[in-house]
Design a protein around this nucleic acid. Structure first.
Lengths: 188, 188
DNA sequence: TCCAATAATTGACTGCGGTCATTTAATTGA
DNA sequence: TCAATTAAATGACCGCAGTCAATTATTGGA
């Protein structure tokens, strides 16, 4: 790999980041990226398999930054803390419908070989939350892994309903709190 | 609305249905639909807002047919029955990655005014399953609505992981069974 | 230093979804 | 029956992601 490659790639990412900051993720056009970066269309696609691959990087970095915060904090001891701690991440992932769609599409890699940034962050997310449940503060009848897995299902559901006109009565946090209480503290 | 309108619309849907039968949902091209139907490109888009709107109809009809089966069956009394009963629907929704993506995108309407076929079926699905839980065979500490809502979250999670290379060890049914046991029969 | 061999870049081109001013057909009222 | 009005259909055109044969830059060996 040549130095030139890294420079071009870095420029493409820098330009894309700037454009996202200006107009959001959904408004990003590859044409605009290559124009500002001063390269040809084809160059973009020799650096990124497709537009999703670039989005994977950009959004993945955003998720990772939020996970850094989660990793710093002490394990949440109540459902309320659990929700409050994750709220910034949820808001990041639902800032635009387009962002949420990309995340859903890329959070599970179709092939082991093509695990991208977002899929990696989801693995990290799971590891992190498994750790929270290993303390045994929540359910003891099922494994920490299953508790974490289930939480992810409810987080996804809460985010999806956020974009649903029929469910605008409740906030994402309120909905998630109800879900997690039922999931993590059954019978109480 | 003229008779001609209904005929054209019916022909477009018939052609699309046939093309899907031949090559699957993801391979459908609007150009091919209009060519076979003998109409112009613009005609297609005066009948359907976009390609998704046609897919909404076709896939929504498929889901509805499966729900008809669910509605006929007696309420499942165990988690195993619950999973077995829903299995055909899950396989329909995951027959193609493209189909699953469309369903995720359209299962929640962005505005009340634009509730489509798939969003409607999801409402029906929820009503149907709420009914199952109203018998009180599962959890009594939370409402039937919440039980149904949670099941939908786990069903979605199980389907999503079906497309994930890292989770190919388990079948969708097996994964869902584990989830639902933990969700519907905690502590046992 | 020069010459392959390889890596990176180019931009015209394609595929496909979606638009819109214009044309054609159906409907209604006099 | 014949305008006038409204509804439907048309197809050239656009936006934008993604491709690929041709070109240019880099590198490593003689």
């Amino acid at each position: 790999m040549q130095k030139r490659t890294l420079e071009t790639r870095a420029r493409l990412i820098a330009v894309a980041t700037a454009l996202v900051a200006e107009n959001g993720y959904g408004a990003l056009r590859t044409d605009e990226v290559v124009k500002r970066a001063g390269v040809a269309k084809g160059t973009f696609f020799s650096h990124f398999k497709d537009k999703d691959a670039l989005m994977d990087l950009l959004i993945g970095a955003g998720i990772d930054a939020h996970l850094d915060q989660l990793a710093k904090a002490p394990p949440p001891e109540t459902v309320e803390e659990l929700v409050a701690l994750q709220a910034p991440l949820l808001h990041f992932m639902t800032q635009e419908r387009y962002v949420f769609d990309v995340i859903l599409r890329l959070s599970g890699a179709a092939a082991v070989a093509e695990i991208g940034a977002i899929a990696t962050t989801f693995g990290r997310y799971l590891d992190l939350t498994v750790h929270w449940f290993e303390s045994g503060k929540y359910r003891s009848d099922i494994s920490a892994e299953l508790q974490a897995d289930g939480m992810q299902a409810f987080v996804t559901q809460a985010m999806a309903l956020h974009f649903c006109a029929l469910h605008e009565d409740q906030s994402m946090e309120a909905r998630l709190t109800v879900y997690l209480r039922a999931w993590l503290c059954p019978g109480s």
